[in-house]
């Protein structure tokens, strides 16, 4: 069952189509990375998922409840959601603890409120702010605010966490801790929907990613398998020099400059695939030339390369 699902979700600001018939389906326990260049519509999508911005078309369901069909349905949909939307914002004149307390008291039914209030100490400890809880938030650093924002989202053990750039302002140690925390939450069944521009972080952390370009989902899948076919193969053969000669004659493949010049030393050959060339085709060419293939490993492009290709021109 989808914890977060959008169907033909559409939003315009004036003449500009910001989110274009977007269909997303995030399953329970997924740690989903939501990527896209600035202005792709990520934040607008997140705001629609949280009932902050009204769509011009389509629908959003959270936990099986429609966010926009009625006030009651929205309340049910969002009652089990924790969120960080862009930068975390607080009442600066209140302490961190009081901020959590007042946000916990605001909204939701009595049971949810009680659960959130009971969580405050644990959450403060979890995000490393137990010692600073009594300080006014206006004295917090950006990293501390970010941690408190994540803490606020965690109150009441939500089923779905929606996090927009959750590691902004954190030092490397803090980023590592947040990554580990989100991984742990997802492993324990919490669905995490995270938007980030740190592609390495998303690649290391997420089970699935989706790439949004100009309001449309242009790719979705596991971080290492965003494109269906691998874009290169690593080949280990018994006769390297002969293999290079054979491969130069196969259409659609490219050899690294260094590989192309080398004349038979040890080590694998990296073969780039394009124009319909496949790992099977490479293997067939080598085998039919009588070359022993010890290993042939398809390699997928790194997320950053795929992202840059998909968002080229945006």
């Amino acid at each position: 069952m989808s914890v977060l699902a959008t169907s033909d979700l559409t939003k315009r600001y004036g003449d500009e189509l910001v989110v274009n018939h977007l269909n997303l389906s995030i399953a329970a326990g997924d740690l989903y990375g939501f990527l896209g260049p600035n202005g792709a519509g990520k934040s607008t999508t997140i705001r629609m998922a949280l009932g902050l911005v009204f769509p011009d078309g389509g629908s959003v369901e959270v936990g099986g409840h429609s966010v926009f069909s009625s006030t009651e349905a929205r309340s049910r949909a969002l009652s089990r959601v924790g969120a960080v939307v862009e930068e975390p914002a607080f009442w600066g004149y209140l302490s961190g603890r009081r901020n959590l307390e007042y946000f916990a008291r605001a909204g939701g039914n009595k049971v949810d409120r009680r659960a959130r209030l009971d969580d405050i100490d644990e959450v403060l400890r979890q995000v490393g702010l137990a010692d600073a809880a009594a300080k006014r938030v206006k004295a917090y650093s950006q990293g501390m605010r970010q941690r408190l924002g994540i803490g606020r989202a965690l109150l009441g053990h939500p089923d779905l966490l929606v996090l927009d750039e959750p590691t902004n302002g954190l030092d490397p140690q803090g980023m590592k801790e947040v990554r580990a925390l989100l991984r742990r939450l997802a492993d324990n069944g919490t669905t995490v929907f995270v938007s980030s521009h740190l592609l390495g972080e998303v690649e290391a952390m997420c089970d699935r990613v989706g790439v949004l370009v100009a309001g449309k989902l242009v790719a979705e899948g596991q971080p290492g398998h965003l494109v269906d076919e691998p874009d290169r193969v690593r080949v280990d053969v018994d006769d390297r020099r002969h293999a290079l000669d054979v491969l130069r004659a196969v259409p659609g493949i490219s050899l690294d400059e260094l590989e192309a010049r080398s004349d038979g030393g040890p080590g694998p050959i990296m073969v780039g695939l394009a124009n319909g060339a496949t790992p099977a085709g490479v293997n067939a060419a080598l085998v039919s030339a009588g070359i022993g293939v010890r290993a042939l490993v398809p390699e997928h492009a790194r997320l950053e390369d795929v992202f840059l290709t998909l968002t080229e021109g945006e």
Partner: peptide, 13 residues
Amino acid sequence: AGTLRYLLARPVG
């Protein structure tokens, strides 16, 4: 202050 979006997402009607 940006706190409105967090109140509405809580959700407060």
